[in-house]
Design a protein around this nucleic acid. Sequence first.
DNA 1: TCATACTACCTCGCCTGTCAATGTATATAA
DNA 2: TTATATACATTGACAGGCGAGGTAGTATGA
Lengths: 123, 123
Amino acid sequence: MLVISDVIRGYTDTIILAQLREGDSYGYELNKRIQSITDSEFELKEATLYTAFRRLEDDAYIISYWGDENVGARRRYYTITEKGLELYRENLQDWDKIKDMIDSLLKDVCCKGWLSRPLLLQR
Amino acid sequence: MLVISDVIRGYTDTIILAQLREGDSYGYELNKRIQSITDSEFELKEATLYTAFRRLEDDAYIISYWGDENVGARRRYYTITEKGLELYRENLQDWDKIKDMIDSLLKDVCCKGWLSRPLLLQR
DNA sequence: TCATACTACCTCGCCTGTCAATGTATATAA
DNA sequence: TTATATACATTGACAGGCGAGGTAGTATGA
């Protein structure tokens, strides 16, 4: 019932931006890298990946260019823009907040019984 | 651009289950509680909340009954079932894994430069 | 008494992101 | 020549979130 892509949903774009920070890349490689980082526990489906690229490029968070391979399949490389980098930084900060928020919504607050009703102590 | 509800998406159901663990509750109260826990940084929109209730009840993760208020608006209370509790526990475990996964995808792996290519050390 | 606000529930229809399925093209190894 | 890997792209179905709208009771104060 819990579909991982639903959790990731809001973060596919940010994940792509995060990877592009480390240098230009293209779809296929980027996805392999993601699989490798997550020990193959996660991958972006191709359809998802390429629609995300379109979205990001339409909004000027990345720009693309064709590689000049004279052998093998052609590759479309992507570069993160300054705007994209800013977005990445913002989203990263948000992520840390959201993480804590979900944690506090999913887990018992400590000291149950010490106080009669739940209190959020870590904020 | 980063819409919180997209991140939460996969977790609205689990959040509801988590709250019901602590005792029966009804929509309005549950949402107030969520707002209070998150310092009003988050709320479930009513439409989202009630559709989630339907979904969860259809799948037998919760059951509902009408409160016997003889004053004020009627309330529909929800109880978490054994099946719901199991789901909650599973999803909570998944959350901890997914959290780490997203972290590793968004953030630099430590020791950059120490190793020439990214490695996931925390797994 | 009338307006306003809060409690409490519900539904319709749009929007957006995911993804299965499908298609294209090149290269290489069996 | 058949299969597999690389590499990109699109279409259409599906699901969840949610704005907008609705119902109905209670309370308060002007």
